[in-house]
Write a protein that binds this DNA or RNA. Sequence first.
DNA 1: CTGTTAGCGCTTTCAT
DNA 2: ATGAAAGCGCTAACAG
Lengths: 376, 376
Amino acid sequence: MRKSGGAGVRIDDVARAAGVSMKTVSRVFNQEPNVRPETRAKVEAAAKALNFRPNPSARSLAGRRSYLISTLYDNPSSSYVMQVVSGVLDACEAAHYSMMMRPVDYASRDHVDAIADSVAQYAPDGLVLTPPLTDDEALLERLQAMGVRYASISPREQNARIGARLDERRAVREMMAYIVGLGHRRIGHIKGHRDHGAAEWRLQGYRDGLADAGIAYDKALVVPGEFVFESGTAGAEALLSLPEPPTAIFAANDDTAAGVLHTAARRGVRVPQDLSVFGFDDLPMARQLWPSLTTVRQASRDMGRIATEQLLLSIRDPLAGGVVQVPYELVFRESTGPAPGHAASSKAAPSRAASSKTASNKAASGKAASRPKKMR
Amino acid sequence: MRKSGGAGVRIDDVARAAGVSMKTVSRVFNQEPNVRPETRAKVEAAAKALNFRPNPSARSLAGRRSYLISTLYDNPSSSYVMQVVSGVLDACEAAHYSMMMRPVDYASRDHVDAIADSVAQYAPDGLVLTPPLTDDEALLERLQAMGVRYASISPREQNARIGARLDERRAVREMMAYIVGLGHRRIGHIKGHRDHGAAEWRLQGYRDGLADAGIAYDKALVVPGEFVFESGTAGAEALLSLPEPPTAIFAANDDTAAGVLHTAARRGVRVPQDLSVFGFDDLPMARQLWPSLTTVRQASRDMGRIATEQLLLSIRDPLAGGVVQVPYELVFRESTGPAPGHAASSKAAPSRAASSKTASNKAASGKAASRPKKMR
DNA sequence: CTGTTAGCGCTTTCAT
DNA sequence: ATGAAAGCGCTAACAG
């Protein structure tokens, strides 16, 4: 009697059918070198004929590898996490790895211990870290001490050898140029969570954009936030109550922007006639809000996949893999328009993307970036 | 040299430390009977002292069980899936199981084969099925043929022995009573995806509500949908273009309701002054929309956890476990108000929940339901 | 390039 | 109530 639905076909069945040894079958399945192409073909044919599926437990036990990637997250945005996870899953499936999810309570004192325990127990071959865990120094230190390999999504420079990132600073800077082009001079910003590198990069991009336009940085127009909806309502409340309120607000992410729109609607401030709003992420929600949201598209699923691919590379060869930069895209929708009293058309997209509603850094930078390039 | 971070402590180390045999330690860890309490205590102490963690691969290999639950989903709503998954994870963690996620392309011809393959390979001890997979007859048949145990979230009656559900029909019926109480007589409905039992139950609840109020069912006020944002925009477009448009719309879920709000805003229809809107699910988004959404709260995380607990029970004892009914809750927010020309206060909640903005089926039914009760 | 042998760490079966 | 021996299905280390 065999395991429910299990094939019941074992490696020696395949070996016998192909007329080779177990070890050769093993070699073929693990993509090891030193197998003649014809032998390989014979084995593959036999395996397919018998519908052989290696038993993951036996593989892990004998091989001292788990073929398991663990994804760690503590991010309030379900959409973001699901997108990254989908990408990780894509890469795992392609490499015949499996993935487990580890929700983390970043705020808890002993989250590092909890993670270490889980790593000790399941011995994943690698971890995928999402923000803000990518920059959790205590965690990184512990993982390094344990000798666990990890990939980072959107890490700060110094914290990652393997992962995926996006030039958020430049993305925001470009978006700011668009906003300034619409005639806005008083542009507010609701910041992201201080523990995220992203909060910093987006703020820098905002400042770059102001500097490019010769607009002085005004501390009063920059308020704190934590990348959540409530940051947007509170931030908008504060900014719109200013004696001289901004005509545009850059919310550090789409969730925050949703809060800004909510508060604007509640206060009877019309978007974009009285106030332009833009965010960052391009969550599915961004199209669904009213007005739909101008934002920066972050290909989170691709980032998850790419980071995992790099991780898998580095698992095979400790020197391989790196941090890959993925392209972003500016998405112009209805939440931004000309500054009150300004003449420009409300639908105008930047000239360099005149034929489309989006502009990517690929186009903007002038070099081909359809294949992500590594950063050193 | 031991596996990265791995404890390196094995079962015979514990056995030696406790002065018993390996098998006894195994018995303790698997909660098997026939171990004297004092022996058990000795073993547990030794294990704790050595920080012993059973090796999952060895366990699975020798025990022919994977200690793995696989969650299958093909649902457009990230929030919904993440909530269910969180619940599944809660239950798995408590039982020392791990979970893997299986995205499914329900539309693809060979999705059943793909699932069967994955089941054959990983041999999960059980599956958790989310809608619409809970009612995918071809899939269920195949799983039964393979002898795989599964739990269903929100299944139709005949399709599940193990799982969790919610009395959606009654929830909508109650909500309709509230809407009728606000003076609405022309109430539209945008349906859910025909493959989901939920679409049917919610439609029935809508019809029950009309019947309760003595309002004739009007086919013209009911339009198709698929539980997505676009269903809401299209459905609202259709309903609001009617010669005599409805004064309230019941959108089959929150995503659809978001689309209705979007279209209403675009067309200059004021919510709730000109149009009341309500949904189903209470996704995080429901609070964030403007106006915030009146809806039915579905405790998706609890449903995921409870369904998994039942599944785990049935894994230990094939006769154990069942379909558990979980309570819902009506959440009254800003998207609903008195019908145009009606006198009632716009904030009025149903009398039975006058002191709160919510009413649950617990309160409404008059029987305690804080602990979910089983259905037979 | 390919095969042989000896386990990986645990649970099973069957004794006691 | 407890233990001893025999694998689970695969890969590592070596040998050829």
